[in-house]
Design a protein around this nucleic acid. Structure first.
Lengths: 218, 218
DNA sequence: CCCTGTGAAGCAGTTCACAGCG
DNA sequence: CGCTGTGAACTGCTTCACAGGG
């Protein structure tokens, strides 16, 4: 079992996974690093280096077995372990995420929805009844929730993050446009539309930008 | 005018901006690199290095003038130039973004909404009438749209990206979980819920992860 | 002979540490 | 005397280039 994969590589594994799923749908049984690189939008050396962190599964002169590689990436990402998700904040974005999340591959089931407003509590979104935010700690414990998604206004985000951490959530994904303070032991990732637009604005200004990477995150 | 700022710095400027807006609301007139670093969740040396790329605006022994610094960051990001936005795909996510976008600071007005389905075309979302996707090139030209946001299913994303590029959009933000091919001259950023969850899954697995970065992106 | 796996070189980003200005 | 601005060291990521296996 491969441990301690560089952050930059981890951020690319889901992209390789996506490409491999497509390849498998196309009936491919093996794939070369060059072909995978093309699909994933990176260069071949990077693909080989990245995959080498998972252990070695390529066959020289042939390439990688698509199915096997998919399994290896899934193992590395821990996709075999189900990680229940709660979405906090049932505004436009939270509701959209709840419905959108329904399409997510098995592994990240949305098991609870939470909001602070009396109007929303009790209503159903995508088949799940919205609970009051005061019940969050209880929900996290009872449903063994691993990931908390914050889709509240900025003003409430830190408070929600504190509750999630306190309740024992394993990691947090925030859509609130604010910086959150959480213990180092809780992985936190942030997605913010305004930030993304501003970054694009910079590159646009001076014609010709880089070619993405996102992940930039880790 | 400061040119050629490192990608990693550009990705942090919106975060500094956010922190500075808060500081200004709190009535602060100056801020030290240490204080700004704390708010932004980075270290002080990084703040100073980053800001040095904008030109020098700090006063030794005192810190940075909040208002002046906000202006400088805005200039660097090109926030003085209005960049009209079109959202393509009026599913749950697209609609949520349209409404959410209404809250965005001036500078990124959503001026058009587009969808392929006859049901959606003609309806109104957040005060804007949804146009048919065939009108996209025309809209981009007439409304001088600078940024295209892709909120379609994966299957349509590449086609939409091609149309946007062809129509002359300056940059693209994609929410579709697929890798898009665009010319190097068009900055592209990707946001994908499933990718984010998978990355979190990795770090969660081995208890104790890094402290975000997002962006990871450029 | 093709394609992987990987040392080694090169580059970008981060952090340190301190000189110097207000 | 505090805090900035920055050279220099360091760390981590990317890319090159090639040895070696199927």
């Amino acid at each position: 079992m491969a441990r301690d994969i560089p952050d930059a590589t981890v951020a690319r594994l889901p992209i390789y996974r996506l490409s491999l799923v497509d390849l498998m749908a196309d009936g491919a049984e093996t794939v070369s690093s060059a072909a995978l690189a093309e699909r994933a939008g990176v260069n071949a050396a990077k693909v080989r280096k990245d995959l080498s962190f998972l252990g070695t599964y390529g066959v020289r002169g042939v390439g990688y077995d698509v199915k096997l590689l998919l399994g290896q990436i899934g193992d590395a990402l821990g996709l075999d372990v189900v990680a229940p998700v709660v979405i906090v904040g049932m505004g436009n974005l939270g509701q959209a995420l709840a419905r959108y999340g329904g399409f997510l591959s098995r592994g990240f089931p949305i098991v609870a929805l939470v909001d602070a407003s009396a109007e929303k509590v009790g209503s159903e979104v995508d088949g799940i009844t919205v609970s009051h935010i005061d019940e969050l700690p209880e929900l996290v414990r009872d449903l063994e929730i691993a990931i908390g998604i914050i889709a509240t206004p900025s003003s409430a985000a830190q408070e929600v993050a504190d509750v999630l951490v306190e309740a024992g959530v394993g990691s947090i994904l925030s859509f609130a446009p604010t910086v959150l303070q959480v213990p180092d032991s809780v992985p936190l990732r942030k997605v913010d539309l305004a930030t993304e637009l501003q970054i694009l604005g910079y590159y646009q200004q001076r014609e010709a930008g880089p070619e993405t990477d996102a992940d930039k995150s880790a």
